[in-house]
Amino acid sequence: MASVSIDNPMTDAEQIGSKPPRLVPNYWPFVLPALLVVSAVIVFPWLFTLWMSLNSWTLGQPRTFIGFANYVRLVQDMRFWESLWHTTTYTALSVVLPLFFGTLAALVFDAKFPFRGFLRGVFVMPMMATPVAVALVWTMMFHPQLGVLNYLLSLVGIGPQEWIYNQSAVIPSLVIVETWQWTPLVMLIVLGGLAAVPREPYESAEIDGANAWQKFRYLTMPMIAPFLMIAVIIRSIDAIKSFDIIYAMTQGGPGTASETINIYLYNTAFAYYDIGYGSAMAVVFFLIIIALSFVLLMVRQRANWSDMEDR
């Protein structure tokens, strides 16, 4: 971050042996404040968490360095493995469903029809709505006796469900909320991809006699594939970290049936104040997310390469 004065014209003699002054403006001062803030609120917590994970410390009690004991404890913790499984199913469902509905919606909103802009605006609203507020209303709608959802089901002849109050139904029920809220994001990403798709191939495919399905399968799909991949990556990262909806609706319950890693982490650190163990969990959780993103990015790279070769 060397800042060299740029106002000082130098003679040839002075220049020898010293670094030549820069004409290009020094942009580091623009970045510096953000760098400080990011170091303080982002980088410092990373390092601190890493350090805390090597200690045994419950708030209010003395701290002792215990090396990797927290990690060993984590591996042997059945509740952690369960929460990992909950996280996996929750995330998988919360990626696949929004991806399906979002792509469908994007294909519709890519076409022209009356009130398109308005309807798209309405469609985007769930992802902007405050998750806690959304969760609260869904909780009322899921109510087994008074909820509107069971009433709607009864209209089509389906018996009442227990939704989030049932151990085996709770995760799918939460995924409904997650899907409702985050399908619009997938729609926007795919819509952005569709906007970048050129028209000419469709015209030539039309001349070549392709039907609608063939055009979708052989033109649209490959061309928006990179964007679908982006949607998968973003959705995965968001879903695996999902907190607000789960915490506000079930706090991980009933029992621990919907306790994901993030919820368990919260309980450990801020309900039991077991800071050391919570930090270790945070580190492992973070590594899981990084690994997942890395794998997905690799897949995406490969997808892009094959695209390049085709062109």
């Binding site: 403006p25 942009y27 580091w28 001062p29 623009f30 970045v31 990011v38 609120v41 982002i42 980088v43 410092f44 917590p45 990373w46 601190f48 968490t49 805390m52 990262i237 970290k241 907190f243 993030n262 982490l265 919260y266 650190a269 801020f270 800071i275 919570g278 930090s279 945070a282 580190v283 959780f285 973070f286 997310i289 990084i290 993103s293």
Partner: peptide, 28 residues
């Protein structure tokens, strides 16, 4: 500054920040 420094790679830190669960900022 980042755009002009062509230091988009430094934005990786922001990507990672996005991946980090909010709770791990909270503890420290």
């Amino acid at each position: 500054g980042i755009a002009r420094l062509k230091a988009e790679k430094s934005a990786v830190i922001i990507m990672i920040a996005r991946m980090t669960p909010g709770l791990s900022f909270l503890i420290p």
